[in-house]
Nucleic acid binder design. Structure first.
Lengths: 348, 348
DNA sequence: TTGAAAGCGCTAACAC
DNA sequence: GTGTTAGCGCTTTCAA
């Protein structure tokens, strides 16, 4: 019946109080030692440290959170981790967070507007100090819903000029640069895969806009026949859109997938139809997913600055968390990451 | 100077106390309403609910956690999310957790033994009720390190017979079934890509064992020449190993990638070398990644029961969390998920 | 430099 | 059926 004896797997964890008693000091002193407070006499510190070690004391994070109002956790909400882009984004955010001593809680919304909106009001978010939010269903009309009572950083191209900090990529410029790259290699009829019919917001619209700008600047016509529309951006969609274009007998000398997954899907269909890449047709992607390095042929693509986006999102969120409660909040920040073309085998 | 007036973005959140005052009842009653305690008079409940709505009261999860000793968060530790297998595993775990009202915090270890061991003792884990741990660097000799003072479920093939619950796949049987599948289709010289030289534990060893069993059962010789060794299991490794085998002039009529990524890498090299798949050579993978559906040709593979693993891991962890602190703990559980061959284009 | 004590917001034993 | 109150473990004034 002895209390505190190490009977099973689990013994009540030592508290600050336990350590204080063991070391013969007050809890305040132990707290000072634990938190590396400077004004502690060396001998006292040693005594306390010894007690900490003996009792294998670990501070109770929950209690600390309740008291301090900070958890050291940030939430990241993405559509799905099985989409490589978001998996690699999450990877980047977790790494960046770790550098800042934070840990990341991941929510999947499925890219569904209702679930996204629901998430914003969820008490689950209370467990974290702030949110990095990458919506796919919400759009500009929902911007007011982003005015939430906790720090948040918005990612993506669904909403601009919202009431929160926004970190994203230079979609138009990057897509324009990608198209110019193809034009500079002598391509004149560049098919696009992944446009969204009638849509004016989001990555698809912006990238298509960059494409159009490059054509215009080069004096090339914008041919509606060359635009392949898809609903989603899975590999299968790229495949179907490409096949439809082939079936219609459209002629082209390059394909620009609005993301890598689409480009890889399109590439498959082209190869099935005996097109040689890059001999017969150039293929360009967008996102710089890891797998573009290993496709056959390796896919030329646009690196939209994903690592920078992750790092910046965490940093901005952390700034905002730090400024929480202060009278004058800085106005919403807009950060655009640098992009770069990664030239691989599919265009040379 | 009025307290509680809605000045900026942030107003101190309402507490139970605030709601109690507003509704003219005690905190206990409010707590009862919030927690759906049954014995509350309907009129009282309505009154309290009104106050909750007016004040937009949300329970403070941190305080609740401190009091209850449970956070509603579980941690998932994987090597890297940019490896599709782990991204898809994480996806499954998050979905399963959500069904049980839990939220998931993700840690990346890089598959590094030291970081894995360090993580097990990290105070960061205190923020969650338990851990689903998928190590890649630790091995059987480290089993004792898994005897941690919090609920944990182990995944993977690095450690068996450890002191904790273990949920994993039937590696040997599944690899054997995959090999038998190839043999049943008339294949006699089946190359393997991804073996780990001299290794006796882990997925590579087990799957190779299943392969050997199938050969033996069919009276086919185990030819060392057909075994392609790799260090890691990235696509690039599959590519290099396959190329080496081709360069040596080894003859084969099928390739079994010990995971999908390897198989896809190998497939690329084969196609580059003008082999037709499946006409000249069959290719089989392992993992049933989403992308196997979209490769050219679509890859036949083994679904190791990933969804079942995720669901079971969460359920077992939850059971263990519930039984925390009780005198007699159930002995460590071992659960093996069901597998299935997914036949696609690369073998027909 | 260290100690005493209040209280973060909630739950649950105990009283009425 | 509802109220009172003692903590959960920590940080942090305020005193000494």
């Amino acid at each position: 019946m002895e209390i505190g004896k190490d009977v099973g797997r689990r013994t009540a964890a030592a508290t600050l109080q336990d350590v204080a008693v063991r070391a013969g000091v007050s809890v305040k002193t132990v707290s000072n030692v634990v938190n590396d407070y400077t004004h502690v006499r060396a001998t006292t510190r040693a005594k306390v440290q010894a007690a900490i070690d003996e009792l294998k004391y670990q501070p109770n994070m929950t209690a600390r959170s309740l008291r301090s109002g900070r958890t050291g956790v940030i939430s990241l909400a993405v559509p799905e981790l099985s989409l490589s882009y978001f998996a690699e984004l999450a990877d980047g955010v977790i790494r960046a967070a770790e550098r800042h001593g934070l840990v990341v809680l991941i929510e999947q919304t499925g890219g569904d507007r209702d679930r996204e909106i629901e998430l914003l009001a969820s008490p689950r978010l209370q467990l974290s100090d702030g949110l990095i939010f990458s919506p796919l269903g919400m759009d500009g009309g929902d911007a007011h819903l982003l005015d939430v009572p906790y720090p948040m950083v918005l990612l993506g191209e669904r909403i601009f000029d919202g009431p929160v900090d926004h970190v994203t990529m230079r979609n138009v410029e990057a897509a324009r640069a990608a198209t110019e790259f193809l034009i500079s290699r002598g391509r004149r009829r560049i098919a696009v895969i992944g446009a969204h019919e009638g849509e004016m917001v989001g990555s698809a619209a912006l990238r298509l806009q960059g494409y159009a700008q490059a054509l215009a600047a080069a004096g090339l016509p914008f041919d509606e026949e060359l635009i392949g529309y898809t609903g989603l951006w899975h590999r299968h969609d790229g495949l179907v859109a490409m096949k439809a274009m082939l079936d219609k007998g459209v002629e082209f000398d390059a394909v620009f997938g609005l993301n890598d997954t689409l480009a890889l899907g399109a590439m498959r269909v082209l190869q099935e139809a005996k097109y040689k890449i890059p001999d017969d047709v150039f293929v360009m992607g967008f996102d710089d997913l890891d797998e573009t390095r290993y496709s056959l042929p390796a896919l030329t693509t646009v690196d939209p600055g994903r690592a920078e986006i992750a790092e910046m999102a965490v940093r901005v969120l952390l700034d905002r968390i730090g400024a929480r409660g202060s009278r004058d909040q800085a106005p919403p920040l807009e950060h655009l990451a640098e992009f770069a073309i990664r030239e691989r085998e599919s265009t040379r």
